[in-house]
Design a protein around this nucleic acid. Structure first.
Lengths: 224, 224
DNA sequence: CGTCAGCTTATTGTATACAAAGTGCATTCG
DNA sequence: CGAATGCACTTTGTATACAATAAGCTGACG
């Protein structure tokens, strides 16, 4: 991560995720180069990567814009994610090691602690949650699958979904993870896939609900 | 397609697809630059794109290699393709226009003619087949889906699958397309998705069968 | 007034030179 | 003789200058 193009990549990416670069705004290579303290060359490199990951869109004359996702886009992304991630769970069930199961259990315990406090520790929840899903992906052992999921998971608004969970949803999420663990214990791919499908779909509806409530405000505000 | 990086992209891509660049061999930017008659800058651009599309892989020290797909990789790719393309068929069923259906019908007629001749016209079959699937993707109207499918469809060996079909398989493929058309006519997403799943899975088994027979020869030879 | 042509400016694309990092070989030391 | 280390060479990364192209603006003409 010390190469200039890597620094540019994470810098730009975090600017998009934080909302510092608003959806729809045009991006100029030179401006970013100055912001990142590098030349245009590594910035171009970073932009190509971000474009492949759908963080950035380019119009017909090659100008770049921060991707702007409609609610329809998001629903489609969640559908794909449910499909891909349940597939990952099925694969994982047949390959996961006891060590990986132990790590899953550990992170789900972390999640429980994070939401058991008087005021839920959402960042901690998010971190454990991310690790949990990552381990499943690791157990699924498919680079292609990993890459595709990155495209539908790491979108700005999607990443903030958990922030909009109320406590009940956080609890449900925790219990669904428990059920996934049970499915893995039994090496039952169908079960794991089914639980995962429901897990993702509930996440979408939780998001859509929160979105409806705060529809008049910009998403960033809602998320924060 | 007149920009140097675009020319480099299609040049390198076709060299990989044709087998001119064998799977596993290392790729040097400067060598490609000379081959394409451009400087390293657009070649680097092209390589990043090809890497995102999984035609090229890079090791930990940033050197590039033509992607080498194991049979396991291929089975995984077919699984993903079945999943994604049946999803596309379901979406398409709810959105497809009569004009698109007419075009589908036309291409399937073309397929019939291609395989009805004394010796099947495989290239023609392939072309109509590609167009057929493309129209469905177009009707599904999801950029994300289109991009993901490109990752699993356009792999060198996968593209050659049809070449290994015997006449019976070509016929079956034609009839499955007919069934898809019927599903679209009735705007029945579940039906379309189910047919598509079978369509792709049969393609995989046809491939695996052919692969088993000629397992001692390099894949390119078998395909040709 | 509107619109269209031509120019000016903003932005991206390409080439090239140089810097940095990795690889492999040869030499040396245990 | 084997392993480790340093050096030469190969390959990729970055900066910068310049070229090409698209966007916006201004002014003239209908």
């Amino acid at each position: 991560m010390s190469r200039a193009s890597d620094r540019a990549y994470s810098h730009i990416r975090s600017m998009i995720l934080s909302g510092e670069l608003q959806p729809g705004v045009q991006i100029r290579e030179e401006a970013l180069a100055e912001l990142c303290g590098v030349s245009r060359t590594p910035v171009r490199d970073a932009l190509r990567r971000l474009e492949a990951e759908l963080f950035i869109r380019r119009n017909e004359s090659q100008r770049s814009f921060v991707a702007d996702w409609s609610l329809d886009d998001l629903e489609e992304a969640f559908q794909l994610r449910a499909m891909l991630e349940s597939h990952a769970a099925r694969r994982a069930a047949g390959r996961i090691s006891w060590d990986q199961i132990a790590r899953l259990r550990m992170h789900n315990t972390g999640i429980k602690q994070a939401i058991s406090a008087e005021t839920p520790d959402v960042p901690r929840f998010l971190d454990h949650n991310r690790q949990f899903h990552m381990i499943i992906l690791e157990a699924a052992a498919s680079d292609r699958l990993t890459g595709m999921l990155a495209q539908v998971i790491e979108q700005p608004v999607v990443m903030r979904t958990a922030l909009q969970y109320d406590l009940e949803n956080l609890m449900r999420s925790h219990h669904e993870h428990d059920e996934l663990l049970a499915a893995f214990d039994h090496r039952d791919g169908d079960w794991a896939a089914a639980v995962m499908t429901g897990h993702i779909r509930r996440a979408f509806h939780a998001y859509a609900e929160a979105h409806k409530k705060g529809a008049d405000q910009p998403l960033n505000e809602v998320a924060a």
